[in-house]
Structure formats: structure tokens, C-alpha cells
């Protein structure tokens, strides 16, 4: 009997080994056989961006070229906005700038960048400043003559103003002038026409005494008809009591 028992133990042991060995080669499935297989995840979008040429001079254009996969919306910044999945556009940045394109799709988003470097050309050689026009020289060099109320006498300050004017007229002998005699609003129209005439004439006579040729100067009296200033006060009246110079062509 004993032998049978031993044989039984060996037998069982072999069987057990066999079972273990089979089990090692063919492990039993651990999930339920009834559940479906999961779908594959959506693909990640991709995008590329190129700038041609990457270096431009200010004012020149560069072309941005891009392509993408798996993207549903693309934005090109700065300054371009929404773009199609593939394409190109021309940009003329004023300064160096890095363009960024952002592609978005169901699988996520991706970005790409391209830099356009702008170089500022050296400024052209500065042209020599234009010579001031004769009008500008005239406005700078010719001083009006101012007068006292009811007077046509050349005052001391008027003498120095007219000396400047005479200096200008001698420097530019081609210039001819009209001297307008003006008055303030006080007094009659008629009296002021006469007074304005005397002021224009006194201005002319003084310039003649400084050596300016008489035939270069005409006179006209406007009396109180063409005031420079229309307030009713002395500041204004003084502005209007004058011999005023105009250049005559």
C-alpha cells in the first residue's frame, strides 16, 4: 500500500507540475471577454513657419510661408490673424519681429515661429538746407516804423528799426517796397487818410536819408481802414500806428 501512496504523490506532483507548466505558457485572461476595444487617440497637430528672406531692409517685404497637419484653426501673429491651413503672405515689418503661428486642432495645439530681422539702411546723405527765400529774408531783415498818436515824426526806436530796414534794402538792391501808412481808429476817416500818408512819406524820407534809392519805394495811405489789431486799447492802437513794408515784385 505504501508503494501506491508514493506513486500517488508522484503522480499528483507530475500533474501539478504539468498544470503549472501549462499555466505558464497560457495564462488565463484577466479581463472579461465581453468589453469593446478603445479608439485610437486623435493625432497631434503640427505646423511649420518660414520667413523668406529672414533679413530685410526697412521697407522691404518678406514672405511668410506655413503648412500644417491636423489643425483646424491657425493664427499668425502679430498683425496677420487667422489663416488657412497652408499658405503664404507678404509682410513688411518696420522693425525686427518674431512671427508665431499657432495651430489648433482636436489633438491639441502646436506653434512655430520665424523671425524677420529688419535692418535700418543708413540715412541718405543730408541735402544742404535750402537757401531762405527772399520773403523769409525780407520778413527777418525789414522792420516796420511805429509812430506816436497823431504824429508822423520818426521816434528814436523807429530810427533804429529803419536803420535795419535800410541795411537790408542796401544788401538786396533788387528788392522794391511798398510802404503802407496806417493809423489807429481814433479821429476821422479823412484825417487819418492824410496822417497815414504823412507816416508813409516820413518812413520813405528817412530811408532815403540813409541812402536807399527813392525810386525803389512807393507809398500808400490806408488811414484807419486796414488795422492790424481791432481792440479799442492803446496796445492795439500802437500796433496800428505804423509804416508797414511790403515787398513788391
Amino acid at each position: 500500500m505504501r508503494i501506491r501512496s508514493v506513486a500517488r504523490v508522484v503522480l499528483y506532483g507530475v500533474i501539478a507540475l504539468a498544470i503549472v507548466g501549462v499555466g505558464c505558457k497560457h495564462p488565463a485572461p484577466v479581463t472579461p471577454a465581453a468589453a469593446p476595444a478603445p479608439p485610437p487617440p486623435p493625432p497631434q497637430p503640427t505646423v511649420t513657419l518660414q520667413a523668406t528672406p529672414a533679413n530685410v531692409q526697412r521697407g522691404q517685404a518678406a514672405t511668410l510661408r506655413w503648412s500644417s497637419t491636423n489643425a483646424t484653426a491657425l493664427t499668425l501673429a502679430p498683425g496677420v490673424g487667422n489663416v488657412s491651413p497652408e499658405g503664404n503672405t507678404s509682410v513688411t515689418p518696420n522693425d525686427s519681429v518674431t512671427y508665431t503661428i499657432t495651430a489648433m486642432g482636436p489633438g491639441g495645439s502646436a506653434t512655430a515661429t520665424a523671425r524677420v530681422t529688419v535692418t535700418v539702411p543708413p540715412p541718405p546723405p543730408v541735402a544742404a538746407a535750402p537757401a531762405p527765400s527772399m520773403e523769409e529774408l525780407f520778413a527777418k531783415g525789414v522792420k516796420d516804423a511805429y509812430f506816436d498818436f497823431d504824429k508822423a515824426d520818426i521816434r528814436p526806436d523807429t530810427r533804429s528799426a529803419l536803420a535795419e530796414t535800410a541795411g537790408f534794402l542796401k544788401s538786396y538792391p533788387q528788392v522794391k517796397v511798398m510802404i503802407e501808412g496806417h493809423c489807429d481808429e481814433r479821429g476821422s476817416t479823412e484825417y487819418n487818410l492824410a496822417l497815414g500818408d504823412r507816416r508813409a512819406q516820413a518812413t520813405k524820407d528817412f530811408l532815403v536819408s540813409l541812402g536807399v534809392a527813392s525810386d525803389r519805394m512807393q507809398t500808400v495811405s490806408y488811414g484807419k481802414e486796414r488795422p492790424f489789431c481791432t481792440e479799442h486799447a492803446e496796445d492795439c492802437w500802437q500796433q496800428n500806428r505804423r509804416g508797414h513794408f511790403l515787398m513788391v515784385r
Binding site: 479823412e190 487818410l193 492824410a194 500818408d197 504823412r198 512819406q201 495811405s221
Partner: peptide, 9 residues
């Protein structure tokens, strides 16, 4: 009339 045709009004 007033005139400065000879210089002074």
C-alpha cells in the same frame, strides 16, 4: 480835395 500829389497832404 486833399492830395499829397506834391508831397505833403
Amino acid at each position: 480835395f486833399m492830395s499829397s500829389m506834391l508831397g505833403n497832404p
